[in-house]
């Protein structure tokens, strides 16, 4: 560990070649990078091969925020410390406006860089997007190709027929009144 008071910087290169310079503490929020930095096996520029620049920007934003919280949480009466509710609201705001393809890339990035908190935010968002949807709606939303064979499709259809057919039971009843 260096003795200097100057903050140590780490450089990260996205898959599309953009280089980001961040403080070491920020990079260390990502467990994968932390391990590398502690083993001192990081070169001048760390290539993050599966993350594109816009996604890496978002990831770094998240890490910076985490550093800000944790650096001040040791002191008492910390203005940055958040209640559970505030944390939730912050997470929601952070994920606001994230479209489905960005969400996917964020999930991949946070899983790969091992950032538990960000992964949880992404999973929560994904769960809220999937709830109450049919498989076809999920495919449309996330641009997933239906690659089942007709036989498999039929089998699935039989297995969860009720997930495909919403029951008009209540509607009929209320309209007949």
């Amino acid at each position: 560990m260096s003795e200097s008071t100057e903050k140590k910087m780490v450089r990260l290169r996205s898959s599309d070649g953009e280089v980001f310079e961040v403080e070491e503490s920020v990079a260390k929020v990502a467990k994968t990078l932390q391990d590398m930095l502690e083993e001192d096996c990081a070169d001048a520029v760390i290539p993050i091969t599966c993350v594109r620049a816009p996604i890496l920007t978002k990831v770094i934003d998240y890490c910076k925020d985490q550093v800000m919280i944790s650096s001040s949480s040791s002191t008492t009466n910390n203005p940055n410390e958040r209640t559970e509710q505030e944390r939730k609201a912050w997470g929601q705001k952070f994920m606001e406006g994230v479209d489905s393809s960005t969400l996917c890339e964020l999930l991949v990035a946070s899983n790969f860089l091992n950032i538990e908190g960000l992964l949880n935010l992404g999973v929560d968002k994904m769960v809220s997007m999937i709830q109450g949807k049919y498989p076809q709606e999920i495919r449309d939303m996330f641009n997933v190709v239906n690659d089942f064979t007709p036989e498999e499709e039929e089998e699935i259809r039989n297995q969860n027929a009720w997930a495909f057919e919403r029951d008009p039971y209540y509607k009929k009843r209320s309209s007949s009144k």
């Binding site: 999937i130 949807k133 498989p135 999920i138 495919r139 997933v144 699935i156 969860n160």
Partner: peptide
């Protein structure tokens, strides 16, 4: 169930 029916 829907999740399982998305793709292989």
């Amino acid at each position: 169930l829907s999740f399982r029916g998305v793709c292989t």
